[in-house]
Design a binder for these strands. Structure first.
Lengths: 350, 350
DNA sequence: ATGAAAGCGCTAACAT
DNA sequence: ATGTTAGCGCTTTCAT
């Protein structure tokens, strides 16, 4: 503790530790960062001095001097949803084993907001970005490219990622789900989408439309949910569906949250699932299998996508992975009770 | 862009912007931080130079020079659970309006891990901490006190917070819930707790025990869940409960996730809720009201706790709030269908 | 209202 | 194996 020009009391610095241990600051730094390079008893003396002084390493100074922050930035549509929490955990677990910290920001599914938060995070000089989605404003893309920071995009697919990609084909997955429903015998399959321009949502809607067209089932029937992440939105849709004549025989939802909201709402109205109407979701969230009837869904490897993205990013940061790396994740159609169970149909992976 | 000693290309700096604008770096800094202090046309020139060069402010350097990181640290038991996500959002929303960023870490409900993550985060020199829980190791408390960083603890209550507190009485809340069940006429009320030493969980268990004792209902009946945050854990408990003879007439759970898991499992086994057994939870999570039957729960102001904690912390950081500030949040017993609804009930029998 | 000098606490590069 | 020097890119303080 010393007095500064400004009169503020400062904390213990590396210099203080060095003085106590009778070495130079560089030796303290080495003990902390490359302990094998220093003599055992010097090391012990430094470690004792650290304990004695209560020194806490300053990563702000370290980041400035080394030009590496040890932070990776995670950009999500929303942080308050179970949809992404497993991916976050996947990233977080990998980050921890590499001693890097994670900083998150949410875009509320809006590219313009994404641009803002990425710009804000860039000020912290993160060593890399993991971004959910591949659809960005021109400015966002330019910003990231100019910054030279490694980027891994995920939860969607594209032939032209900014840098690297952990991909998921929302189109293929929702098309496969729709085809599975057709194979189960459903003929009037309605889809719950969104009016927002969220690319993952749009690709899923297109996958549904493609399957409907290929099956020759007539015009697709799409309803838009207000809020993609609330069960209440699912309930609202269910009420609209229930009032339709003729009523659809199956309701396919953009995600499991909406599907669960719809399923429970149907039951509350006295409709049986799947007897009166079948329900299917997307995401494979934990609670889906606990519902009664259990929810048919597209199971996607959320945790693994987070892990994989973090591993790729850390490889890019370390320079061991090349730019342009791509890895496509599969999905699995989990047919459960809400669509009449899992008579042996194909379980597709890609 | 310039060449450094090491030969690495560096980004645009404030100095570069200053040169382009024909001013000193200090003026650029002022334009960015206290724009009213600088002459309008100088300001315009600087802003043009910023745009022209694509300058991105460096918060790492700023943090080091100003001794303020603009980061607040959030310590949670777990990040991958809906239980805390609304509180996170509350903190995040307030943080954003004050242009501070948030960095999170999880403790997995373990004080020893909490100590580790707090030490790790302290290295980033956050301007303040928000910590879920009031139970910490001696070392954690000493560390935080020595660091002098403002701390707001939340989601639990104590007369001796480290610094400031946004309190919630888990004891009172669970006692009130138990009393409500007794008032509804339930007599064999089982409780799902945990074997871990998580203080909030323990206080809830104690609240239950106190109410059971006061009602003269005999010995409390406590089962421990493996995992506090999975519905599957609730299912396992439900199976054990269903096999008991005589069977409890109500099951009160530590949180809504366990309660939902149990409720759905009972239904799957063919038991009716609340006819065969009533179920109640804790937390007031969004999906509770959507279940069928809707789940009786203790509704707590999760988002508001996050908001309030962030506001207090920012006040402490700015120096406008004094140390030792405390604010106690309330709770609300939400009687719903899973315990027979909210008909006005008679006073409890003894 | 603007600028110059002197750090903030660390690490890269070089020297021994 | 350890130390010295010169920054990293800002902000604080003081001077003008």
């Amino acid at each position: 503790m010393r007095q500064k020009r400004g009169g503020r009391a400062a904390g213990v610095t590396m210099e203080d530790v060095a003085r106590v241990a009778g070495v130079s600051a560089m030796t303290v730094s080495r003990v902390l960062r490359q302990p094998t390079l220093v003599n055992a008893d010097l090391k012990a003396r430094v470690e004792a001095a650290i304990r004695e002084t209560g020194y806490i390493y300053n990563l702000v100074a370290s980041s400035l001097a080394s030009q590496r922050s040890g932070i990776i930035a995670l950009i999500l549509p929303t942080v308050a949803s179970s949809i992404f929490s497993d991916s976050v955990k996947g990233v977080s677990d990998v980050a921890r084993t590499h001693a890097v910290q994670m900083i998150m920001a949410e875009t509320n599914y809006a590219p313009a907001e994404e641009e803002k938060v990425i710009e804000a995070l860039l000020r912290r000089r993160p060593d890399g970005f993991i971004i959910v989605g591949v659809s960005h404003t021109r400015a966002t893309r330019a910003l990231l490219e100019k910054s030279g920071v490694p980027v891994v995009e995920t939860w969607d697919s594209t032939p032209t990622p900014i840098d690297s990609l952990v991909g998921l084909s929302n189109f293929d997955a929702m098309k496969a789900m729709t085809e599975a429903l057709v194979a189960q015998g459903f003929r009037r399959i309605a889809f719950v989408g969104t009016a927002t321009r969220d690319r993952r949502a749009q690709m899923r809607a297109k996958g549904y439309e493609a399957a409907i067209a290929e099956a020759g089932l007539g015009a697709p029937l799409i309803l838009n949910a207000e809020d993609l992440t609330s069960m209440d939105s699912g309930r609202v849709i269910a009420e609209r569906i229930a009032a339709m004549r003729p009523r659809p025989d199956a309701l396919l939802c953009l995600n499991d949250v909406l599907a669960a909201g719809a399923l429970l709402a149907f039951q509350r109205m006295g409709l049986t699932v799947p007897g009166d109407i079948a329900v299917a979701g997307f995401g494979g969230l934990d609670f889906s299998s606990h519902l009664s009837p259990s929810l048919t869904t597209v199971d996607i490897p959320r945790y693994e996508m987070g892990q994989k993205a973090a591993e790729m990013l850390i490889g890019r940061i370390a320079g061991t992975a090349a730019r342009g790396g791509t890895c496509e994740m599969g999905f699995r159609i989990a047919l459960r009770e809400s669509t009449g169970g899992s008579r042996p149909t194909e379980a597709k992976a890609s």
